[in-house]
Design a protein around this nucleic acid. Structure first.
Lengths: 143, 143
DNA sequence: CGCAAAATGTAGGGTAAGCTACATTTTGTT
DNA sequence: AACAAAATGTAGCTTACCCTACATTTTGCG
């Protein structure tokens, strides 16, 4: 019994870490999709160079990651023609942006300075599950 | 002017992303240190196999990461003799644990179910800056 | 138009973190 | 003491993400 419980806890902890690893792995994809969506709606085009500059990486890195986005069906592009999102990519962008906004708002509501809230939200948002997001929304609604 | 402001915003965004990347990179080290500290205080020893099982990775992966901890001055060990933390490692573990607890408490205070709070905190805690942590503590203190 | 600058793409290298498979050492049991 | 099982360590492979350096294509301007 005790052993069963101990193993259960251990398995749960392993699952927690696995979950965090998965979130870390998809965080970059989400950042790219969100940024591409921003660029498309604000300037009409998303060029690798702009993406790279906004993310603070070299354009070579951006191009490689964009290739991965394409492989995963989130974006498409033709050489020298800018990047566009697929329906899946666009949907993901919307989800991510909504989550981002809620996280920033919650942080600010808790007294975190706005600039700091923006910075921290960038990392936090990728680890906020649906259940937590729902709680955040409820909290904001009645605060 | 407008250009300066635009560049400023762009640089800030790049910095935000750089910051998130750094946090992601150190998250794993923190997880290891926290876990090793837990194992040492609860069972008196931290063996690679136990660490691997608790993190949900193969023992080979755990051993490689422990080698990195040693390289970074956070831990030390001799072959077949378990892992121990340096003073720096121990200090980091305490910091990380405190942050973890505060994050879990804040999530719960916001209405996130306890089990979910534990899971999400595992990822979130690594992105909580000192300023945000301070705000969280203040919030908990008066809630 | 033609040419230089900007953007894009490609090649190749580094580190980190994961894995499986195999080798070695230690532990524990008979 | 000897042997099997468990733990530990090593080797080698994969993928991701970052970089610099170089090649190619497009763009824009004189």
């Amino acid at each position: 019994m005790e052993q069963d419980e101990a193993e259960m806890t251990e398995a749960q902890e392993a699952a927690r870490h696995a979950s965090a690893r998965t979130a870390r792995a998809s965080a970059l994809m989400q950042d790219y999709v969100e940024l591409i969506d921003d660029l498309l709606s604000s300037t009409g085009e998303a060029r690798p160079t702009d993406i790279a500059r906004r993310l603070g990486v070299s354009h070579a890195t951006a191009i490689k990651t964009i290739a991965r986005l394409k492989r995963e069906g989130l974006a498409h592009s033709k050489p020298y023609r800018g990047v566009f999102l697929t329906a899946a990519g666009h949907a993901l962008a919307n989800e991510v942006r909504a989550r981002h906004r809620v996280v920033v708002d919650v942080l600010k509501a808790l007294g975190v300075p706005p600039e700091v809230a923006e910075i921290d939200a960038e990392g936090i948002e990728h680890h906020v599950s649906d259940a937590t997001l729902a709680a955040f929304e409820k909290f904001l609604g009645r605060s």
